[in-house]
């Protein structure tokens, strides 16, 4: 993996653990941005070290702080459970053994909000605050959240990527990475595109009106 100098010296964060606190906060924030709304209910399923030592490391509060939209260095992090209660966010924490191949710092978030489709995200905190989203709604991804990113839920129809990349070409947005995964041929698919810089609003509007696009999220780089 290609590290930045600021992966090594950083992130700026609330303690005590870059993997268990800052990484967890970044996972929560990315999940919230994928949901596109403040969640009303969140089920957080923890594996391995996340489950075993999570409270002492404030992993629970960090995940929820991210879900509330806070950056990993926001001093509101330690009080996130109280803030969630006040905001009417219903939380359920459970443990699950995700198997020997699962990274020790893994979590699955199942989120719902009144005005947004539900979301299920599996992620791991890899150390030093670096995270990876392995799975969004059952689609395999390798999203790290460090770049501007488009996440497209769409029908698996020919021409989708050609149209999408044509729009990006028109506004001169360079594609860094692109990955499509699908539930089956001709069924539903998810495309994740990382770009060098944000996609302008008018292009986003055009993309969101593509006929086979079910849902589109535009994510800024994570703090």
């Amino acid at each position: 993996m290609k590290l930045s100098a600021f992966d090594v010296i950083g992130p700026v964060m609330i303690g005590p653990s870059s993997s268990h606190t800052a990484g967890a906060a970044r996972i929560g924030l990315l999940a919230r941005r994928l949901l596109g709304a403040r969640p009303a209910r969140a089920r957080l399923v923890l594996h391995g070290s996340f489950a075993a030592t999570g409270r002492g490391h404030a992993t629970d509060r960090a995940l929820v702080s991210g879900l509330l939209g806070h950056a990993p260095d926001d001093p509101a992090l330690p009080a996130a459970l109280d803030e969630a209660a006040a905001a009417g966010l219903a939380l359920e924490f459970t443990e699950e053994d995700m198997g020997p191949d699962a990274h020790p710092n893994s979590v699955r978030l199942e989120l719902s909000a009144p005005d947004a489709p539900g979301l299920r995200v599996s992620a791991s905190s890899l150390g030093g605050g670096v995270i990876e989203i392995h799975d969004i709604d059952g689609y395999a991804t390798g999203l790290r959240g460090d770049l501007d990113t488009l996440v497209c839920w769409h029908a698996d129809k020919s021409g989708f990527l050609a149209r999408l990349t044509a729009v990006l070409a028109c506004v001169e947005v360079n594609i860094a990475t692109l990955r499509t995964s699908r539930h089956g041929r001709g069924i539903d698919a998810l495309t994740v595109i990382e770009t060098d810089g944000p996609v302008p609003a008018d292009a986003l509007d055009l993309l969101s009106r593509m006929p086979v696009m079910t849902r589109l999220r535009s994510l800024q780089p994570l703090p």
């Binding site: 005590p16 870059s18 800052a22």
Partner: peptide, 21 residues
Amino acid sequence: ELNAQFGRIVATPTAGSAGIV
């Protein structure tokens, strides 16, 4: 010590080793 009290630090490269550099 600050890290253990939910203070703001720079992970270098991690929080558990953030004091050395």
